[in-house]
Amino acid sequence: MFEARLVEGSLLKKVMESIKDLLNEASWDCSGNGMCLQAMDSSHVALVSLMLKSDGFENYRCDRSISLGINLASMSKILKCASNDDIITIRAEDDADAITFMFESPKQDRVSDYEMKLMNLDTEHLGIPDTEYACVIKMPSGEFSRICRDLSVLGDSVIICCTKDGVRFSAKGDLGNGNIKLAQSANVDKEEEAVVVDMREAVTLTFSLRYLNFFTKAAPLSSQVSLSMSEDVPLMVEYKINDKEGDSKGYVRYYLAPKIED
């Protein structure tokens, strides 16, 4: 038996919004540690690694590890039937061919449940090595979304250049070119508005804006995003999943393979 109850149900709605445009289907691997999902997009260019920690749920029961094969578009449609302030409970019997979502209003005066068929998925799991990145950039997630959106006007790719002075995002195309430079924040009252660069060595890499724009769908989960880069390895874009109190409930990490000069 698997059962997980999340009082701040809107977090699960946001998690689904952050992956549904990038992935068609994936397995939720449920264990005592929590719910994990790892999947590549259909082009095998990007990888999503998602964790919802068991102690982030108000109730969490997982008698034995199970893998729930899910059509993510269907799950997203069902979660849209939950109000933002609903409490969401996910339930699956061992060896079941369906999963149940229960939505309770805060006053408990409206309870709905939806059953969704599970899929048999032959999932490939990739080993993600622990990496010491040459640069880790932390910035407001809204700022990163805006940069990706604005530079998409100019081209398909963005060059991210990280030096000790700050970060430069550049794009060029038939229209012309554009550059956005962010300096490290000297003094910020609010931590979530800070731009912080932790740099061992300068890095310049090129990435597809189309994928980065998919990743920015996770911005409602977190006020800050971190971009971790090293030469010739995939970029890691991480949004931490925090509740209203700021406690960590997990993360959404996206890995994107770089583009190279033809």
Partner: peptide
């Protein structure tokens, strides 16, 4: 013009 590398090249099959 740039070529997109696929992610398979970096991570190992488990």
């Amino acid at each position: 013009f740039c070529d997109q590398i696929i992610i398979f090249n970096f991570f190992l099959d488990k």
